[in-house]
């Protein structure tokens, strides 16, 4: 049986404008979770009925902790940003499929608030691969966050829109500037970035796993709100609509239309 639980807030800090890092204690979730999965966070204010899906940034199974890094984009995430040590929040998870980690030289591409899941992805990859094979490309609008954590597990390349750090431009500009190569790609970020990464992977013939985002209601595959267009018939409705929350959020780039 799945269960929803109250997680204890260990600590929370603001790590960039509107970006918060929240450590919670949720031993069962921490024991099961893996990179690329997400949690549903429920608002204490009952007038906000829908859970917020937040990707897992880091897992500490020994202490039973989960780290969530999210951006405040509305009233729900604003409420979460006010959580303090000792507080509690209702969570459900881990949800979704996660990244299937493969051996070989990898690109871990994160854009904006798609960067956090790359921390756990890099951490898990570091158990099976050399540091030099873990090439992390992080794209920021301007201000950077999680750079230290990412550097800890792999080679970090930064791209910023305004050129304040690293390559001025996109994550693909950074890959080209450094003439990087990979056998497999893991990516999470805004749709235009995913579209460009998918096209790049297609040209180069690289296996590419992308994490999708869509508005969700139930978070468990029942309501069919968060579908994305798939190239093949899905196994739920037998049309071409995969559920981001249940069949994803991670898909092979050739599996989905962007």
């Amino acid at each position: 049986m799945k269960s929803r639980e109250y997680a204890k807030v260990i600590r929370q800090e603001k790590i960039a404008p509107d970006v918060y890092s929240l450590w919670i204690e949720a031993p069962q979730i921490a024991a099961e979770a893996k990179a690329g999965q997400f949690l549903s966070l429920y608002s204490a204010d009952k007038s906000r009925m829908l859970p917020r899906p937040i990707s897992i940034c880091e897992i500490d199974p020994d202490r039973g902790y989960i780290r969530l890094v999210y951006r405040v984009v509305g009233a729900g995430t604003e409420e979460f940003s006010g959580l303090c040590e000792g507080g509690r929040i209702q969570v459900l998870g881990p949800l979704g499929n996660g990244f299937p980690l493969k051996e070989g030289k990898a690109f871990l591409i994160g854009g904006g608030i798609g960067i956090p899941p790359m921390v756990q992805t890099a951490k898990e990859l570091s158990a099976i691969e050399d540091r030099s094979s873990i090439q992390i490309i992080a794209g920021y609008r301007s201000e950077q966050f999680l750079a230290e954590e990412l550097k800890h597990y792999g080679e970090l390349y930064i791209a910023t829109e305004d050129g304040c750090a690293g390559t001025k431009g996109t994550v693909l500009d950074a890959i080209r500037e450094h003439a990087l190569e990979a056998d497999v790609i893991y990516a999470c970020g805004p749709k235009p970035m995913l579209r460009a990464v998918k096209a790049y992977a297609g040209e180069k013939g690289i296996e590419c796993w992308i994490s999708m985002e869509e508005r969700m209601a139930c978070g468990i595959g029942a309501c069919l709100a968060c579908t994305c267009q798939s190239t093949e018939v899905d196994n739920h409705t037998h049309v071409k609509n995969k559920r981001v929350c249940k069949d994803g959020p991670v898909f092979l780039s050739t599996e989905v239309e962007l």
Partner: peptide
């Protein structure tokens, strides 16, 4: 039935709007 394009839902005060389209 394939249903409607996304976004299919939006939260509102003490409720939500949906337009799943009977997928």
């Amino acid at each position: 039935w394939p249903g409607n394009p996304t976004p299919r839902i939006a939260e509102t005060a003490s409720g939500m709007l949906n337009a799943i389209g009977l997928q």
